[in-house]
Design a protein around this nucleic acid. Structure first.
Lengths: 109, 109
DNA sequence: GCTATTGTTAACCATATAGTTAAGTATACC
DNA sequence: GGTATACTTAACTATATGGTTAACAATAGC
């Protein structure tokens, strides 16, 4: 498992690189939901949603349990934290520079 | 420019989804560098590096200026902060839950 | 048993990534 | 001028994404 976390970051960032998948995650951040509920805001076919779900699952960002014919989906926080940790790790160096832009952005979230 | 920031996030997260590009950004977080310096750690051809550079530039994560025949490359912090902001925005919801896993992860960075 | 609902799989098409080798552009050096 | 260096472009191949329609599996409700 030398560089497995690298592969995991590949999948996590790749999963975040699509607006539908980010929309699904945003919805799930407010609570669990079924696949149909997650699909509702988007004008794509059901199979397209299935594919996005698989990419999110493979990335470890989402998990689900089957209850009858409904799939109950929820966020997996761990991998998302890994992704955030990668960005933050390198922001530490930037903070050392602390230039005008950095200050500006701190004031305006 | 209704949903242009969405497209920008697509590109930023997509750019972060490859170990060579994350390596390039990590190197640049410690200071400016030439293309050759950025390429050195990786066992791929020069054209492959050129392509990664273009993806990083298109994502707005990297900029450069030509000095003679050498390209001086540097980080663009703004877009990286946008990407981080997206993750943090939704982590706020998760923090509200503050379940056992969240606590566990806080103790073990 | 029949039918509607939930969700997936299969098969297909278009485009984007990710890499290669070979050739080209532009600057530096002598 | 001639050659080496830094980097890009062109052309090609393989695989992954992102979408479609059509068909299938499994459960719920009557």
């Amino acid at each position: 498992m030398v560089n497995n976390s690298g592969r995991q970051l590949d999948l996590a960032f790749g999963a975040l690189a699509h607006p539908i998948r980010r929309g699904i995650l945003a919805r799930l951040s407010m609570g669990e939901a079924s696949v149909a509920e997650l699909a509702k805001p988007f004008k794509v076919s059901a199979p397209a949603i299935t594919k996005h779900m698989k990419i999110l699952e493979a990335a470890g960002l989402l998990s689900r349990t089957k209850q009858g014919r409904v799939h109950r989906c929820r966020l997996e926080q761990r991998r998302m934290r890994q992704a955030q940790a990668w960005i933050e790790k390198h922001r530490a160096f930037w903070n050392a520079k602390l230039d005008a832009l950095e200050l500006y952005l701190k004031e305006t979230p």
